[in-house]
Each structure stands twice: as C-alpha cells, then as structure tokens.
C-alpha cells in the first residue's frame, strides 16, 4: 500500500512537471519563433568591461549573428577582455538550441516588468551548460534576464534591455555579470614593487564582474555568409 502511494505521488509529480513543461515549452517556442524572424544581423556596439581588477576603456564592438547559433563578437580595434565562455553573449545561444526540458519556476519581476521564470535543463549530460534560467516577459515575448550555470566557467547572469528593436527580440543593451575569481599575477613577471594599497586590493577582491554592451544600429536579415563566422 505504502509503495503504491509513493508511486502514485511520484507519478502525479511527474505528470504535473510534464504538464508545466509542456506549457513552458510552448512559451519558449513562441519566444523562439519570434527570434527566428531574424535570420541574421550585424550590430555595432559599445562595450564596457567592469571588473574590479580590470581597468579598461570603453571599446567599440561589432557583432554578427546568423541563425541558428552562429555568433561573433568582433572588436572594432583595441583589446577586449571577456569572461571565458561568455563569448556567445547572445540570447539565442541557449534558446535556439533544441534538446532541453523547460520547467516553470514561477513568476517574478525584472526591472518592474512581470516575467515568467523558466528553467531549462539540457537533456544531454555532457554539455557545458548545466542549467539555464530565463526570465521571460510573456506579454512581449522577450527574454528580460537569463542566468546560466556552466560546467567550467561558473555562473553568468545576463540582463537585457529592449528598445527600438524589441519587435525582433533584439536588445539595446546587454548587461552580463559573472563571478570574477580573485586574480593574482605571480610576482617577478611584472618587475614591479607591489605597493598597491591594501584597501584598493581588498576592494578588488570577490566583486562581481560585469560586461555591458550597448547596441546601436542593427542591420537585420542582410544575408550574412557563413564564411564570416570562421
């Protein structure tokens, strides 16, 4: 009797989970469908790296995207520093792939907008992404925020702000945050006497790193060649 009860309970749970997943898959698919209107795009952007121990000027970048998963961020001159694995800073990277389970994780708000929280679990075990959480604005079918946990490179958080390209699901601004590991350069290489104030050093420790890209001028569906992404 006992066993049967447990079995039924588990069954109920799995059914309900499945039921939610069905709903969420639909939502994700709708978002996906919206995004699929964009076959490719290029955009200019200004990228700001905000990591406590990185002092960098604002750099100009150019991004290229081609459906389903080709993405390239190119510096317009200069040197850029990006967290490892964060090279594919684009919303499509997760959602445009297939083979995941979408689970409803309730409602929330991002910047005053009501959003549905959806957790995406990859079906394959070996993938780099362990878990992805999307905060989807159901009304506009826009992803407002995503949190991605990776196997190798920690957790990234991406906030997206939309403006004139909202119709295409393309953000005007992407704010990418991650846990920056404490970083120390072995002495001897820098050939300098380390006399950085301790207060400054402490300030640089354990802070979240952020990369902010402000996009201007999207060129959508111009028919980019694959060669561009090589």
């Amino acid at each position: 009797m006992m066993y049967k009860k447990i079995y039924l309970l588990l069954l109920a749970c799995s059914f309900s989970a499945f039921g939610f997943a069905q709903d969420m898959n639909a939502l994700v698919s709708k978002v996906k469908a919206k995004l699929e209107k964009v076959k490719d795009y290029t955009a200019n952007g200004k990228m700001k790296t905000d990591v406590a121990f990185i002092k960098a000027p604002i750099g100009r970048v150019k991004v290229f995207y081609k459906s389903p998963n080709k993405f390239k961020l190119q510096r317009d001159g200069g040197i850029s520093v990006l967290p490892k694995g964060g090279v594919s800073i684009n919303i499509g990277s997760m959602i445009m792939q297939s083979g995941f389970v979408a689970i409803d994780a309730g409602l929330s708000t991002v910047g005053g907008t009501a959003v549905r929280v959806v957790k995406l679990l990859p079906e394959a075990d070996a993938g780099e992404i362990i878990l992805s959480t999307l905060y989807i604005d159901e009304t506009n079918l826009l992803i407002r925020k995503s949190v991605t946990t990776t196997r190798e490179n920690g957790t990234y958080e991406m906030e997206l702000y939309y403006g004139q390209y909202a119709a295409y699901g393309l953000p005007d601004k992407v704010l990418f945050s991650f846990n920056a590991k404490d970083y120390k350069l072995p002495k001897g290489i820098t050939l300098e006497f380390d006399d950085t104030d301790k207060a400054i050093k402490d300030k640089m420790k354990g802070k979240k790193g952020r990369v902010e890209i402000n996009y201007t001028a999207y060129n959508i569906n111009t028919g980019l060649s694959d060669a561009l992404f090589k």
Binding site: A52, P57, G77, L185, I189, D194, M204
Partner: peptide, 19 residues
C-alpha cells in the same frame, strides 16, 4: 599599434590606443 594591455601586480590595465 593598438590598445596597451598590461598586467599589474594586482590588476589588469588596458590603455586605449589613442591614450
């Protein structure tokens, strides 16, 4: 020429090319 990327003992500095 390009930006100047430097590793200091406790932080990284990227100096803009024009700077």
């Amino acid at each position: 020429t390009d930006d100047l990327f430097l590793m200091k003992s406790s932080y990284v500095v990227i100096v803009k090319e024009s700077d």
